[in-house]
Structure formats: structure tokens, C-alpha cells
Design a protein around this nucleic acid. Sequence first.
DNA 1: TATTATTACTACCTTTAGATAGTATATTAT
DNA 2: ATAATATACTATCTAAAGGTAGTAATAATA
Lengths: 137, 137
Amino acid sequence: MHFSKTAEYAIRVLSYLHRHHETSHSVNVLHQELDLPYKYLTKLMTELAKKGLVNASRGREGGLSLARSADTIYLCDILEAIGESLEHERCILGFDKCDALNPCALHDQWVKPKEMIETMLTTTTLASLIQNKETKL
Amino acid sequence: MHFSKTAEYAIRVLSYLHRHHETSHSVNVLHQELDLPYKYLTKLMTELAKKGLVNASRGREGGLSLARSADTIYLCDILEAIGESLEHERCILGFDKCDALNPCALHDQWVKPKEMIETMLTTTTLASLIQNKETKL
DNA sequence: TATTATTACTACCTTTAGATAGTATATTAT
DNA sequence: ATAATATACTATCTAAAGGTAGTAATAATA
């Protein structure tokens, strides 16, 4: 019951780019600042660039920056970009189809937690994340 | 943002044992009735037996049955039995320590969904699961 | 134009969850 | 006792996520 490492990394990196949006940052800087595995980050950032969440430019003075305003980037956008869709319809017990008419044994109990998670993912933007000097990234 | 396969299997099997508690059931029967991988189930049931959730007896007329009343078995007990603890303190962004004083960027947004999940896991018993003929197991 | 700093690409390695195979051991009905 | 039916144990395989290595392509700047 948690995010994948990839999701964690993506959120942390994008949050960092938002907080330091005055300039672009190389993968190496992100790697050092956030203590994330360099080569894996390279791969991830390429993916996020393809999906249009970040601008990537090569060469000297190149690097990465947010492609859109942080208040238009929702957590669900980030998950989608890395191939982890919202799974609105994903059944908690893994069944293909599971709804009120044709429920799994846990369907009713899962309704509220599911809603809360969904709300969190669809209403939280990068810009709305906690940010102060003490906040962990 | 979902249960592991192992957790799914454990919940489904235990729910089945509850609904058919008049007798014990062999792994083979559970395998066929619930369409779960036989050998993997064998391993899982041995584990659940060790952890005291089911009684296992060998030989003819042997098989598996719930070791306790279904209204004393909570979802969190099941997760704990398979080594997936509640992770009360698990940070959504993977940080070791993350609390109100020393929060990660997502801490505030995660509070409510986390509570809902925790409530679900600590209040839902096997006995309280949906059960009718149509319910998927 | 040569150098340097950067991302992009291709291929492979590692770890872990999930799944399988074969054999040993226990129980009980006959 | 013996045969049949179970779980228990040990070892291994597979697939996917996570992570690494080396090289090619690109762009700024001196």
C-alpha cells in the first residue's frame, strides 16, 4: 500500500524543479541534491520529457526544467506519465470487473479509502505540496 | 497503490474458509475453487498455519480450517501474518522518519487517505466481509 | 572548430515477488 | 500393515522492478 520507487522519484524530482524553477538543472545535480541513483534518474527524466512534463535540453547550460506551470501538474498526471495509471477501476482483490452490482468481498470496505486516495491524486498539484526549508525532498 | 498478490490470495482463502467453516478443505480444493496457483498456495497456507491463523492437519480427512473465530481476525492480522505490516509510519515518499514536525512534501495530503486505509484494515474482520452467492472470491 | 557538458540510447545486471517441481512426512480409513 | 490423501520442506525457475555501464548525439562556448 505505497507508491513505487519510480513514482517517489518522479514526485521528488518534479517538486525540486518547481522549487528551483529560476533555472534548469542537470541530472547530475538532481542526483546529488536528492540522492537518487544517477543512471536510473537519466532514464526517468527522458521519460518525463517524452511525456511533456519537463523540458530537456542537451549540451552546456542544458538540463531539465518543468514544462508547465506547477499548478497545472497533478499527482495523477505524474503517475500517468510513468505508466502507473489511476486504476480507478482496479479491484482491491485483483478481479477484472468489480462494482457495486458485482462486488468482491472487500468492495464496500474499500470504497472510502479509494475515494480519499483518488481525491488526493486528482486535486494535489506540485504547487500545493508543502514547501519550506525543513521539508524533506 | 494496491495489495500484493500474496495478500489478495490470503484474504480470499481465509474468507473462503470462513464461509465454509463447517468442514476443513485441502489446498487442492482451495486451488480449484478459487483458481489460485496450487504450489504457491501450499507455501502460503503453511505460513498462515505457522502464524496461527489456520489449523492444518495432514493425511486423509486432513486439510485447512480457520484457527480462530472470523470476527476476531482483522485484515491487519492477515497482512501481518504474511510479513506486510501495517506500515503506520511508512512515509508515502519513502523517507525513514516523516511526521508533522519533520514532514515530507506530501505528508499533509497523505494524512487522510492513510487514516482511511488504517481504519479499514484495523476494523474489518473476515466476518464482516460481503458474503452472498454473487460475491467474488 | 575543438572542447566540454549535457541528454538519449542500447544493452545488460540485480533483486525480489510470484510460481513451480520433486520429495519427505504425517494421518487415517480400510 | 498398507494404501491413499494430506501438509511440509527444499530447491529452483520466471518475470518485473529497480539499477548500472558504455557510448552516441547534441548544443553552448571558448
